[in-house]
Design a protein around this nucleic acid. Structure first.
Length: 259
DNA sequence: ATGGTTGCCTCGCAA
């Protein structure tokens, strides 16, 4: 079973590239972030015709997450429990014998800002909810744009990023708390940072300053696995080539295969 | 050189 996650930065604009990517890489389950459209505007029929069932959680203009699956979708949960969030950033569902979640963590704006506090609060509630899901002892895959580069190995020229949003200590602590409750970073499970070329694992390159051409990237998209999922993890990868195509998202797709 | 790009949709904001 192949599970992929992609911050598409508008599903409507990205639909041609999305179609090309699905035809080429054929994921069984797709976790989308930044769909940037309300539910009634989501290209549901188009994607259903590609062979996917869909669960969508959108809003006007910003954010928006979705789960697409070749299997029936059951037990869909919108938003994090006990976190009444007007921003559409979380959805989970049970499908094809696994539970999956699509997460679009807040960017955080500037360290110390209101947006930054909201990001830390989002992480707190995410940790609480995932703690509950882990008690189910299922194969759980939590994928998305976490907007945190966990270590300096995940950052091009980390000395230029010291104290910035995406890499600050409090954000990294919030991300690490998800590992502390028992989730496993799929990339690091198979490619420890001291045994791989870390530049190969970037998932995001800013549209500005020719960041893609210069490979000024960060690893901020992640697939986190429960122990049950991790024990059947076979492979993981980044579809980096899709960042270099015509009219790309600023994020590349990330995927894993479970046996 | 304090820059640059993209998407949504307003004349700016978020990333």
């Amino acid at each position: 079973m192949k599970i992929a996650s992609w911050n598409v930065n508008s599903i409507k604009v990205r639909l041609p590239l999305f179609s090309e990517w699905v035809a080429e890489t054929k994921p069984d389950i797709i976790l989308l972030q930044e769909t940037k459209c309300q539910n009634e505007a989501f290209p549901a029929e188009f994607i259903e015709d590609m062979g996917y069932n869909i669960a969508i959680h959108g809003q006007k203009t910003f954010n928006g997450v979705a789960i697409l699956s070749k299997f029936p979708l059951e037990d869909v949960q919108y938003n994090l429990p006990h976190f009444s969030d007007p921003q559409a950033r979380y959805i989970d569902a049970f499908t094809g014998g696994v539970r999956v979640a699509s997460v679009y963590a807040p960017n955080g704006g500037i360290v110390g800002s209101e947006k930054y506090a909201y990001k830390l609060s989002f992480y707190h509630h995410l940790k609480d909810h995932l703690t509950t899901l882990l008690t189910f002892k299922e194969k759980l895959i939590v994928g998305g744009d976490y907007n945190v580069a966990p270590t300096d190995a995940d950052v091009h020229e980390p000395e230029k990023w010291i104290g910035e949003v995406l890499v600050s200590d409090a954000e990294r602590s919030s991300f690490n708390a998800l590992l502390d409750i028992g989730l496993c970073d799929a990339v690091r499970a198979l490619y420890p940072e001291d045994r791989t070329n870390n530049q190969d694992w970037y998932t995001w390159w800013d549209y500005r300053q020719g960041a893609w051409r210069r490979n000024w990237g960060l690893r901020i998209d992640h697939l986190l696995l429960s122990p049950e999922a991790n024990s059947s993890l076979k492979s993981v990868g980044i579809d980096r080539g899709f960042r270099g195509k015509e009219r790309p998202s600023d994020h590349a797709p990330l995927w894993c295969i479970l046996l």
